[in-house]
């Protein structure tokens, strides 16, 4: 059966059940809104950054005195190289830069093979049916802190790291989680369900760079396989209800106190395999219950280098 569009599904479901169609976006009644701006650096100075957005617009943003940047490590914003792809968290209607992540990427998948090089190691990752295979490099200098959080460094085990893309090569720099001790096909079962599903579910929210550039949305693990053409969907240790592409989620960052309404736009089959917890503010219940696009993650107050925040999820 051909899958049409998430937007159309949302409209049709709302009409059939007699509910209003909710527009995606942040819930504005909770302090100053954060904005996410993405693009390629054209010029940068200590006080000003000029970027070329995906729409081809040139944006000139003011860099706040307290602003920080990350490109494999903490750097001064003025030291970012021209040509870097950046994600910027901005205040004041998106004009004042507060935080910059340059060439940041996240490698979430299953270890397929590991190179035998002595120093920098090449690792093949399987990132799910939609995202395919990916080759990453673990530099010798980062291997210690990555291996200590990934003790099962062998094919069949999950891997999650944050790094940078440099000259077309993906370099892992930071572990994004403590590796689950089980193989990716042996996800622990969810707790036994009782009478009905809770209206709000708590867990971990992460981000992924597998979304389209500047896309607002989320990937959700508990989708019917037949509806999404994703043979590995429908696995989670968190006891999630079934939803579909196009369903709206009310995503609340418990740590930052910010909420957004986001559509499900992708299959989060790989996120569902991680039965870990986020320690961003207290210990979250186990299980990754949603995977956000970088833009949505930043606008909800998340830090891309931390990799997660504690989340409370409701149906939007």
């Amino acid at each position: 059966m051909p899958y049409r569009s998430a937007e159309r599904r949302r409209v049709l479901a709302a009409a059939a059940l007699g509910r209003t169609v909710q527009d995606p976006g942040p819930v504005s009644s909770e302090g100053e809104l954060l904005h996410s701006v993405t693009g390629e650096i054209l010029d940068v100075s200590p006080h000003l950054i000029v970027i070329d957005t995906p729409e081809g617009r040139e944006e000139r943003l003011i860099i706040a005195p307290w602003a920080t940047a990350w490109r494999g490590e903490a750097v001064s914003p003025a030291d970012l190289p021209v040509g870097s792809n950046v994600i910027i968290r901005a205040l004041r209607a998106g004009r004042v830069v507060e935080r910059i992540w340059a060439d940041v990427t996240r490698m979430t998948g299953v270890i397929q093979s590991i190179g035998t090089d002595a120093k920098d190691r090449t690792v093949e990752l399987y990132c799910g049916p939609h995202r395919g295979q990916r080759t990453i490099v673990i530099p010798y200098g980062a291997s210690g802190r990555l291996r200590v959080r990934h003790p099962q460094f062998e094919p069949g085990y999950l891997f999650d790291a944050i790094g940078i893309r440099e000259n077309g090569v993906t370099h892992a720099r930071l572990p994004a989680t403590s590796q689950p001790p089980y193989r990716w096909t042996a996800v622990p079962p969810p707790p036994l369900g009782y009478s009905s599903v809770q209206s709000r579910i708590s867990g971990t929210a992460t981000w992924s760079d597998a979304f389209d550039f500047d896309e607002q949305g989320a990937a959700y693990p508990m989708l019917e396989r037949s509806d999404t053409a994703c043979d590995e969907a429908g696995v989670s240790c968190a006891g999630l209800p079934y939803l579909s592409l196009g369903s709206m989620l009310n995503v609340r960052n418990v740590c930052a106190g910010r909420t957004s309404v986001l559509p499900i736009v992708a299959c989060g089959c790989m996120a569902g395999r991680f039965c870990d917890r986020c320690l961003e503010c207290g210990t979250s219940p186990r299980g990754r219950i949603v995977e956000l696009s970088p833009t949505s993650f930043v606008e909800l107050g998340g830090d891309l280098t931390n990799g997660c925040f504690n989340v409370r999820l409701g149906l939007g």
Binding site: M1, R4, A16, L243
Partner: peptide, 14 residues
């Protein structure tokens, strides 16, 4: 149907 999907305990057919 040209599309079918599921949300919670509802199955939709278009």
């Amino acid at each position: 149907p040209i599309d079918s999907w599921r949300e919670l305990c509802w199955r939709f057919f278009a």
